[in-house]
């Protein structure tokens, strides 16, 4: 127990620093995923075949290649394209796009669960397709997909650990650093695991609040 406290005392400041970065990456990626994922999901439902095809290609690319490969591609690819962005930004962008692909799929499946009558009433009242989606369909869809979105965003937090391979100083990277100092991998990994878990508890707590709120205003 003494040894645990001793190691934790050295490791925790490093891990907490990493936790901050992990939290920042996760929040930013999730925000990107929500905006970009909604846009891609909307494009999937477009009547314009070309628009739909672009959206489907985006989803296929990000869902059918390993995330680690995507991370390396972005890390070496962006500079090759003349874009000099930090490892942190690269990580946020690629994790955001990766999560957006899954978000789009979840959104689309949610939309297909909305009764046809909801669309028809909106069109019959003179609403455009865009207005119908944004004001009538998506708000109802969001309520249905909160649980699956939560699962996806918890996954995003976990996937952010892969960004350590491109030198982003997030928690997994800091864990390795702490191990280098303390030579106690087991104890440091236990600490790191608990911190990841705590971060995801926050997401699940937020999700539960949203669900409770939704249930209160009925549907």
């Amino acid at each position: 127990m003494d040894e645990f406290m001793h190691v934790a005392e050295i490791a925790l400041p490093l891990l907490l620093q990493g936790l901050g970065t992990t939290a920042a990456i996760s929040v930013l990626s999730i925000l990107i995923a929500m905006v970009l994922g909604s846009a891609v999901g909307y494009m999937c439902l477009s009547k314009n075949k070309a628009v739909e095809l672009i959206a489907r290609a985006f989803i296929k690319i990000f869902r059918c290649t390993p995330f680690m490969v995507q991370v390396y591609l972005a890390y070496y690819g962006l500079p090759a394209l003349g874009l000099n962005v930090s490892a942190f930004s690269t990580g946020v962008i690629i994790l955001g796009m990766y999560t957006a692909a899954y978000t789009a799929v979840i959104l689309e499946s949610g939309v297909s669960a909305i009764p046809k009558g909801q669309f028809e009433a909106s069109y019959a009242m003179g609403m455009s397709r865009f207005k119908t989606m944004v004001r009538i369909i998506f708000p109802q869809t969001l309520k249905i997909i909160v649980p699956s979105l939560t699962g996806q965003f918890v996954q995003t937090v976990k996937d952010s650990s892969i960004l350590s391979i491109i030198t982003v100083a997030e928690m997994t990277m800091m864990t390795k650093e702490a191990i280098g100092i303390t030579f106690s991998p087991l104890i440091v990994y236990i600490c790191a695991g608990v911190l990841y878990w705590a971060l995801n508890l926050v997401i699940e707590f937020a999700s539960r609040c949203i669900e409770k709120h939704n249930n209160r205003v009925a549907i």
């Binding site: 009558g117 028809e120 009433a121 609403m127 708000p139 549907i219």
Partner: peptide
């Protein structure tokens, strides 16, 4: 007017009635 009413369930009665005059 539809057989299944097709009111928008995430909006109140008043919001249902106001939605299109305001939005459209």
């Amino acid at each position: 007017v539809f057989q299944q009413f097709n009111l928008w369930p995430h909006k109140t009665v008043l919001e249902n009635v106001m939605e299109c005059p305001v939005q459209v």
